Computed example of a mutant assay.
Amino acid sequence: MITVIEQAVQARLVATAPKVETVPVTLRYVRSDPFAVCMAFPAPATLEGIEISWTFARELLETGVERSAGLGDVRIRPYGPGRTVIEFHAPEGIAIVLMETAELRDFLARAADLVPAGTEHLYLDVDRSLTALMRDAS
């Protein structure tokens, strides 16, 4: 049974310079963490020179492909026909990424096949999460 979905997509990293760089990005969805999606950027695309991953709510991505969403570190909105802008806000600055909306919708459909929206609570392992939380607290 499938428990993890990964999808490679192309993203356009928008910089302050006129150059717009295309970078491969990996979207990841794990059934055991049903409320979240992860977006991983390869080392060459980051200031630190290491792979960087951002984890945020699946619902934020679902909403953001339709209309502006997010007030915190991750903000998502449609951008013209067929594209979506994702902004990542960090102390080091803001990264703005343009992605094909169709690729994001395909990823979200695959995630919904794995864990239908509204049923996420059925896939949580509360005992395991609580054990991990207690272990980290001690």
Rank of each mutant, 00 (worst) to 15 (best):
L71V: 00
S68V: 07
L27K: 03
P24I: 03
E92I: 13
D127A: 11
M1I: 08
T22N: 04
E21H: 08
C38K: 00
L114I: 00
T119S: 12
L60A: 13
F35D: 15
R75M: 06
E48V: 03
L71E: 10
P24W: 03
M99C: 12
T101G: 10
L13S: 07
L133I: 08
P78A: 15
M134Q: 04
G118L: 05
D113A: 06
A57E: 07
I86Q: 09
A109S: 09
R105H: 12
R58L: 11
R77G: 09
I76F: 06
E120C: 03
V65Q: 05
Y123H: 14
D136S: 15
F35T: 02
V30R: 02
G82S: 13
E92K: 09
I86E: 04
T131H: 06
L124R: 12
G72S: 08
P81C: 12
T22R: 14
V14H: 04
A45S: 12
A40M: 07
R83G: 07
L71D: 10
F56G: 05
R110N: 04
F107V: 04
L124F: 11
E100N: 14
D113Y: 01
L130F: 04
D136N: 12
F88Y: 08
V74H: 03
T16C: 07
R135Q: 15
V37I: 15
T119P: 05
T26W: 01
E103R: 14
A112F: 02
I96T: 15
G93K: 08
R83K: 13
V65D: 11
P34I: 06
G82N: 15
S32G: 03
T16L: 06
T84Q: 12
E59S: 11
V97A: 10
D106M: 13
V85M: 13
E103P: 01
W54K: 11
D125P: 04
A57L: 06
L108A: 11
Y29L: 00
M99I: 09
V25Y: 00
L98H: 15
E59W: 02
A17F: 01
L124Q: 07
V97C: 15
A57Y: 01
V65A: 06
